[in-house]
Design a binder for these strands. Sequence first.
DNA 1: TCCTACCTATCGATATATTCGATTTTCCCA
DNA 2: TGGGAAAATCGAATATATCGATAGGTAGGA
Lengths: 363, 363
Amino acid sequence: MRDPGLPSLDQLRVFIAVIDHGGFAHAARALHRTQSVISYTIANLEEQLNVALLDRSKRKPVLTEAGKALLADARAVSLKVDGMRARAKALSAGLEAEVSVVVDVMFSTCKLVRILHAFQQEFPTVAMRLRTEALGAVTQLVLERECHIGISGWMPGTQDIVERQSCGYVTMVPVAAPDHPLAQIEGVIPSAVLREHTQLVLTDRSTLTKGQDFGVLALRDWRLGDLSSKHALLRSGIGWGNMPVEFVQWDLDAGRLVQLHISEGSAFSFPLYVIRRGDEEPGPATRWLMQQFLDLEQPAVPPPNHDMRPSPVAGDPGVSHMHHRLSDPPREAKPSGKPGPLPPQGASPPGVAAPAPISLRRR
Amino acid sequence: MRDPGLPSLDQLRVFIAVIDHGGFAHAARALHRTQSVISYTIANLEEQLNVALLDRSKRKPVLTEAGKALLADARAVSLKVDGMRARAKALSAGLEAEVSVVVDVMFSTCKLVRILHAFQQEFPTVAMRLRTEALGAVTQLVLERECHIGISGWMPGTQDIVERQSCGYVTMVPVAAPDHPLAQIEGVIPSAVLREHTQLVLTDRSTLTKGQDFGVLALRDWRLGDLSSKHALLRSGIGWGNMPVEFVQWDLDAGRLVQLHISEGSAFSFPLYVIRRGDEEPGPATRWLMQQFLDLEQPAVPPPNHDMRPSPVAGDPGVSHMHHRLSDPPREAKPSGKPGPLPPQGASPPGVAAPAPISLRRR
DNA sequence: TCCTACCTATCGATATATTCGATTTTCCCA
DNA sequence: TGGGAAAATCGAATATATCGATAGGTAGGA
């Protein structure tokens, strides 16, 4: 009792084959079927659609106007089905249907785009769900199983559930607008002066980072929920703050922002990690994607260690809770046995001698 | 011997129904089939795709991850097929697969957009092929059966093949850039002065209009292949020329162009026609579309006949061959028995008292 | 004009697939 | 723990697809 007007995919494919091979008999050979089947199938399709698709009065069948229009539809349907079958095949081979990723806003957009591009090439059938969040929100989404993997800074108290592998460093530089008072100061800006001005600080709404608002230098500080807002306010001259160097490189070059030389150093780095829940087995695509992030760190050589680690009082200026309570120092301190970390290549900020990653800071 | 992994549309629909109705038995009732068929069909689909789509371990079947992904595909396929069936139904009811239209550049874009919008609403399954051409090129495309219908000015020597129905008027106004010498002249510009300046004239490459370059006032004239070029050159102040008032209204209001008052009148109209080959039967969509164009003229009342018809010497300034050789005066002169023509409503150019259509001019 | 090669439509027989109705198994809730 | 609802399974009946052979066309060449 199935819908009598419903064509079958087989009919559609036969129709397409007849056109592509220029005849019933040729299509039959191409499809490894007898010619009578082709004839029968096309006749059925025409009857079900109640439209003549082919004019068979001539030696070789020729599309009618209706046939032309419906052939286009048939091809579209066939294409979609092929896609579906490809996905089914990938799924049956164990590929996951979807990978969800959450990256910290600090992570280089350029690298992210490159990796996602490669992902699409490698796994065309796997859907990608991407979010960007700040700070603890990344870890939280992974903890809540909202996202399979995350790119995040260090989060205390999550070692039991979250597996973490180092995947590079973000270099932060303190910046302000060129007309900001701090930008007028020659030489190193002492902490006391810095304290006088409003600091723009990135924050987030995750429970992980709740009540952890230390590590901020200034007396007055503004909390911004996203990096773009912070960026806009910095450029407007409303305050100073730390920004990922890759994010403001262009502004620094163009003079829309200037780097501040503060007593705690003109730049500092902190590590990013690929994180995922340890209690869930990642699928092949997830594993592949994680490896891509990890490979970012591969061509690294140990960076020159001009230690610019901020003094204890500085904490992690600009990042309200990259404060590292030192819950697991020996293991978390640095990726043991691996080559030393390297700051982002090719994006060294002008005026930053050699931003060295600081793997752990204590207060 | 059909492709064994190829799912059938019926299977996909059953799959969708199971999800939408929340179970095998419910889907069976909705589809007027027995429950065993649903079970059998889904089992087959899963086998063909080699993927478990539903987890039946619980009371009501729940989608697996793979099932979720493939359900989306199934819906997409089903939707496409529905579209195809809708088209097939329309075609079997006699609707044409595609309507091709060519409109003169002079025709109001605003009206055209409105009509095409309505067409899409009315005939969602009919494809639209639209071209815009100038002058004789419109008629030529209809003659060559490249387009089913055209919107064109009057073309001589085509009465035998082309059927023509009046569908409104285009009002042309002579314009120039504000800094053009002609724009500085107070009062009416005499022909002798006009002749001194370069006139920009629209032309086309159709054979219909070949060698018919009269009706142009100026001694020097530039021929432009499209209206936008002409428009750009007019605004640059390189010469003067006639333009459809709707096309330059905005420029006139903003003072980027000014209307010239020439001795032959400050504006003139000429009729547009819906044309099609008389030897081909138009389908329902084509007929409907033609009627839409014709209805543009419906709410008309006979316009006040401030006759601004250009003097014989003026011919059709700016339009190189709207010259009307008077091959069939009585019948072609005006749409007999119909209400008189009306200039485009709501778009009367400032400074044009009441542009009256001139239905025929002799030389 | 006829002949030949090649194409499509059609037919009866057969193989395969779908459906039905009844029955069994499973799960969930009372 | 038992009853109800839902899904799986099975054999029989039915419907559909395929095969191979044949008939009836068209196009192009002799």
